[in-house]
Simulated assay, not measured.
Amino acid sequence: MASRLNPYIAFDGNAREAMEFYHEVLGGKLELGTFADFGSSESPDADRIMHATLTTADGFTVMAWDVPERVPFDPGTNVALYLGGDDPGLREYFEGLSAGGTVAMPLRKQIWGDEAGTLVDRFGITWMFNITGTRS
């Protein structure tokens, strides 16, 4: 059996908005389920996202949820989502995800021959990009 590792992002009530934005930029199939959908219709969290999965044609999988109100939400800065490869279309993802966010390091050629850049999207999530260049 194969294993895989994907990011699972916690949000404080705006998981739906974030995942719809990621879906708009990255494409693919988005599945959203609220706490009510999973049987917690009487919960104060009923309308929050309990589980969301975005699966793209490029093979990306991003998962997310809204932390329940009873659970402390303390976002960290030690986690980033990494998109890398040789597909020039990654530049479009960089531009799309930077809308409303902050580009920390513009996408440009680096000393190792690849294009790399970093941004923080409008939801406070850090994205790191590396587009493989032609090696000499």
Rank of each mutant, 00 (worst) to 15 (best):
A2C: 07
S3N: 10
S3M: 07
R4S: 14
P7H: 01
Y8T: 08
Y8I: 03
I9C: 09
D12G: 14
D12N: 15
D12L: 01
N14K: 10
R16I: 04
M19Q: 01
E20G: 11
H23T: 07
E24K: 14
E24V: 00
E24D: 13
V25M: 04
V25H: 02
L26Y: 00
E31T: 14
E31Y: 01
E31F: 03
L32D: 06
L32H: 04
G33Q: 12
A36H: 06
D37M: 10
G39C: 10
S41N: 12
E42C: 11
E42L: 12
E42R: 11
S43Y: 03
P44E: 04
A46N: 03
R48P: 13
I49T: 10
I49R: 04
M50S: 10
L54V: 09
L54K: 05
F60Y: 05
V62P: 10
V62I: 15
M63W: 02
A64M: 05
W65N: 12
W65C: 15
D66G: 11
P68D: 03
R70A: 15
P72V: 06
P72E: 02
D74M: 09
V79C: 13
V79Y: 08
A80K: 02
A80N: 09
A80V: 04
D86G: 15
D87I: 07
G89H: 01
L90V: 07
L90E: 02
L90I: 12
L90W: 05
Y93L: 08
F94S: 12
F94E: 07
F94V: 09
E95Y: 02
E95V: 12
G96C: 06
G96L: 01
L97S: 08
S98E: 06
S98Q: 09
S98H: 00
S98Y: 00
T102L: 08
A104L: 13
M105F: 00
M105G: 08
P106T: 01
R108M: 13
R108V: 09
R108T: 13
K109Y: 01
Q110K: 08
I111M: 14
I111E: 12
D114C: 11
D114E: 05
E115D: 11
V120L: 02
V120W: 03
V120D: 01
F123V: 06
F123H: 07
F123M: 00
G124S: 06
I125P: 14
I125T: 14
I125R: 05
T126R: 14
T126N: 12
W127P: 15
F129A: 10
F129W: 03
I131D: 10
I131S: 11
T132Y: 03
T132H: 07
G133K: 04
T134M: 07
T134V: 10
R135K: 13
R135M: 15
S136R: 05
